[in-house]
Every structure is written in C-alpha cells, then in structure tokens.
Nucleic acid binder design. Structure first.
Lengths: 162, 162
DNA sequence: TGAGTATGGTTGGTACATGCAACTAGTTGA
DNA sequence: TCAACTAGTTGCATGTACCAACCATACTCA
C-alpha cells in the first residue's frame, strides 16, 4: 500500500466520488421510468426476491444482515411481499421464534419478469460499450461493492462492541 | 453496433445489473455510517450544494432538470437549505416569477467540509486499488452516468411530446 | 431449575425523499 | 388584452428507513 498518492490518483478518487453521488440518485429512476412494465415489484422487493432466489429459504434476519438494513425495515417489506403472494413464511424448525422465507411460484415468475426488464434496461444503456469495457465495469463494480459490504459490516460491528 | 452479443457480454450485463442493485442500496449508507461527521448536510442537499458551487447561481428549475427530479422536490430541499443558511435566494431580474440560488459563504464551507469527508470515505474504500483500476473505474462510471443522463432526458422528453 | 439475560421478529412512531395535482403569480403571443 | 403557458410552491400520498418498545422463545448459570 502506498503512503503517497499521486495527484492522478486523487483526481480519480474525486471523480469517483462525484460520479457515485450522481449514480446513486439516478440509477433507481431509470429502472422505474425507462422500463414501462418494470414496476412489477418495487425496488426494495426486487432485491429480496433476487436474494431469496439465489440463496434459498432464509430468515428475515439473514436478509437484514445482507442488505445492512434494520430488521424492522425488512419485516415490513417481507410482510408486503407475503401479502402479494410472492413469498411464503414457513416455521423454522430449529427456532420457534423465527421463520423461513421462501419464494412462491408466483414470486419466481415475478422475479424472472422483473429481472428481464431490468437487464434489458441495463443492456440498453451499455449497448455501445466494448466487450472489454463491459467486463471491466462488471468486475470493478463487484470489487467496489465488496469494499462497501466490508466497510458496512465493520461499522456495524463497531457499534455493538465499542 | 452488434446484433448478436456473446454469452460473455450477457454475463457482464447481468453482473452489472446485479451489482448496481446492491450498490444503489449500499452506497448512501457508507456516507452516513462510515463517516462520523459526514452528516453535515444530508444526501440530497450535498448534490445541490456541489452543483451550485460548480455552476454558479442557478434557478430551481435548472436544478430539477439536472437531477431529473420533480420541481416540488427541489423546491422543498432548497427551502431547507435556505433555512439552514447554506443557500440564498436572489430575485431573478429577467423573470419575476423565478429566483436565483447562490451558495452562501457558510454553504461554501459546509460543502468543502462535506466533500472532504466523502472523498475520505471513498479514498478509504479504494485504498488498495491499483492506479490503473482507479482511473478505469472513474472513466467507466462517468460513461455510465452519461448514458443514464441521456436515457432519463429522453424519457422525460417523450412524456411531454408523445 | 428457575430467574435473569439474550435473541428473532413485529409494531408504533417518526423522518426524509419523492411524485402528482392543484394553486399562485408572472410571461407571452395572437 | 385575454388566453395559454411557465416557474415555483404547497397539499397530499407513498416508499424507505431508523429507533424504541414490545412479545415470544431460547439460553445461561447460580
């Protein structure tokens, strides 16, 4: 690790900070405005459905940890997903306080449709990118996310053990 | 432009879509949680301050256009910035319905402090990245944002001229 | 084994960001 | 000059989020 960063690196950091600020504000909207039928499920719900799909049945707490959200937030979102019939609660055999959340068949379908929508939007945005840039962007984004995740986990941990 | 994308490209798009979903949800939190003193101004306010700083006095409508937000949203945020003494309204000589928004000196200071905070957070996250990755990420993010901006402008325009 | 503590989840209250609809006040053009 | 338009604000609804208080179950240890 370098102790002295060059001005070029600093400029990159500044630019990244700037671009992230814009990106965060704009990205959601494209999903909602650009894709006419994308509102199949709301933004928050989509993440939950996708994660349940990828990971299989999970407890609410596991979702909260993954998204770094308050348990109450997840609880409400799960409730509305359940009411919409996209997710089902099963009792957790190992802990009767808890439950396990599973995608329903309808949830599967909705996830598939929404994901296709969203991928279509992203594909449209990246239409003219070179293969190399695509691959690069994907891996850099993933790396950045990993850093974010780590950072968030760390500050959460600090809170509980000061 | 290619009509047929390879499976490798599709995988990149899928991965990018996935990572963006996470990024959007997580990025804001790092600014708020990771940086103890970052709450100098809220997320929404920061963007406005920064843009006013870069562009000089602007009308609310110009801000709304830049951020692709509803005029009412900007109006409220500007009101609270004004109450906090970060932004001042001046009458617009050319149109008495409108006004021009200018950073106050205090606004300048707060922007500088907040920006430093945020850049610090980003720098921390990118600490171990190579110079090349930094530069790449910065330029790819910028390109993606430009695409987003274009896409959002387009759908806005379609609304008014169907 | 029973009291005290810890944990998983839910609910109440609150705050903020945002959009749409309705409104006010000023501008423009036939 | 009057109708149509535009800039901005305000009222109302919704989505997302947090914290605090709470319930039920699980765990610990004297």
């Amino acid at each position: 690790m370098q102790l002295v960063e060059s001005t070029a690196d600093l400029a990159s950091v500044e630019s990244i900070e700037q671009e992230l600020t814009l990106l965060v504000r704009r990205a959601q909207k494209v999903y909602l405005r650009g894709a006419p039928a994308a509102q199949v499920v709301e933004r928050a719900a989509y993440g939950i459905l996708a994660w349940l799909h990828d990971m299989g049945p999970l407890r609410p707490g596991a979702l909260a940890a993954h998204f770094h959200l308050d348990a109450s937030t997840i609880s409400r979102q799960v409730t509305s997903l359940e009411q919409a019939g996209l997710v089902a609660r099963e009792p957790d055999a190992e802990d009767r306080r808890a439950c396990r959340l599973r995608l329903t068949e309808h949830g599967q379908e909705v996830l598939t449709a929404t994901r296709a929508e969203r991928r279509g939007v992203v594909r449209g945005l990246l239409q003219s990118w070179s293969r190399e840039d695509l691959a690069n962007f994907a891996s850099l984004l993933a790396a950045f996310n990993a850093g974010l995740d780590h950072q968030l986990s760390q500050s959460t941990r600090e809170e509980s053990q000061p």
